[in-house]
Amino acid sequence: MIAYIRISKARFGRPVPSPEEQWASICQFCERHGYLVLSSCREDEASRAPDTLERYPGLSHALALAKRKKCSMVVASLDRLSRDVISLADLMHQPVPIIVAGPDPDAGSFVLQNAVALARRERRLIAADRAAVTARQVTRWRRELQAQQSEMG
Results as ranks from 00 to 15, higher is better:
Gly13Tyr: 04
Ala107Glu: 14
Pro17Val: 08
Ala76Phe: 07
Ala46Ser: 15
Thr134Trp: 03
Ala49Glu: 13
Ala132Arg: 14
Gln28Asp: 14
Arg143Asp: 09
Ala62Phe: 03
Glu144Asn: 10
Pro105Thr: 08
Ala64Thr: 09
Ala46Arg: 07
Asp79Arg: 00
Ala107Ser: 15
Ala89Met: 08
Val37Asp: 01
Asp104Glu: 07
Leu63Asn: 05
Val138Leu: 12
Pro15Ser: 15
Arg6Lys: 11
Val37Trp: 06
Leu125Met: 12
Tyr56Phe: 13
Ser109Asp: 12
Met1Val: 01
Lys67Gln: 15
Gln22Glu: 07
Pro103Phe: 07
Glu20Phe: 08
Ile5Leu: 15
Tyr56Ile: 12
Leu125Arg: 09
Gln28Ser: 13
Cys71Pro: 01
Gly58Met: 02
Gly58Arg: 04
Ala49Lys: 14
Leu78Gly: 02
Ser72Thr: 06
Leu36Lys: 15
Asn114Arg: 12
Pro15Trp: 05
Ala135Leu: 07
Gly153Asn: 06
Gln113Arg: 14
Pro15Tyr: 00
Met73Gly: 02
Met1Asn: 03
Leu59Asp: 02
Pro50Phe: 12
Leu36Cys: 12
Ser82Tyr: 10
Leu91Arg: 03
Gln94Leu: 03
Leu112Asn: 11
Val74Pro: 02
Arg48Leu: 09
Val96Gln: 00
Asp79His: 01
Val138Asn: 04
Leu91Val: 02
Ala135Asn: 10
Gln94Gly: 05
Glu43Gly: 06
Ala119Ile: 05
Val111Lys: 11
Val16Phe: 06
Asp44Ala: 10
Gly34Cys: 08
Lys69Ala: 14
Pro97Thr: 11
Ala127Leu: 11
Pro103Trp: 02
Arg121Ser: 08
Gln28Tyr: 01
Tyr4Gln: 03
Gln22Cys: 01
Ala107Leu: 04
Arg130Ala: 15
Met92Tyr: 00
Pro105Met: 00
Val96Pro: 05
Glu144Leu: 13
Arg68Asp: 12
Gly153Glu: 06
Ala127Ser: 09
Arg55Gly: 02
Glu54Cys: 05
Trp141Asn: 10
Ser18Gln: 10
Leu112Val: 09
Pro97Glu: 15
Ile26Gly: 07
Leu145Phe: 05
Arg123Ile: 01
Asp44Trp: 06
Pro103Asn: 12
Ala76Asn: 02
Lys70Asp: 10
Gln137Glu: 11
His61Asp: 14
Ser82Leu: 08
Pro97Ala: 10
Gly153Asp: 03
Ser25Gly: 13
Arg14Leu: 14
Ala89Glu: 12
Val100Asp: 02
Glu151Tyr: 07
Ser25Thr: 13
Pro103Ile: 03
Ile98Tyr: 04
Asp90Trp: 03
Arg136Thr: 11
Gln28Cys: 08
Arg14Ser: 13
Leu81Phe: 07
Ile126Glu: 09
Ser25Met: 00
Glu144Gln: 15
Leu125Phe: 08
Gln137Asp: 09
Pro105Gln: 03
Ser40Cys: 11
Ala147Asn: 14
Arg130Cys: 08
Leu118Gln: 09
Ala128Ile: 10
Ser47Phe: 02
Tyr56Ser: 11
Pro105Ile: 04
Glu45Ile: 13
Phe29Arg: 01
Leu53Phe: 06
Asp90Leu: 04
Arg42Val: 15
Arg55Lys: 04
Asp44Ile: 03
Met152Glu: 07
Ser40Ala: 10
Ala127Cys: 03
Asp90Ile: 04
Gln22Phe: 07
Ser18Asn: 07
Leu125Ile: 10
Ile99Ser: 01
Pro95Gly: 07
Met152Ser: 10
Leu53Tyr: 05
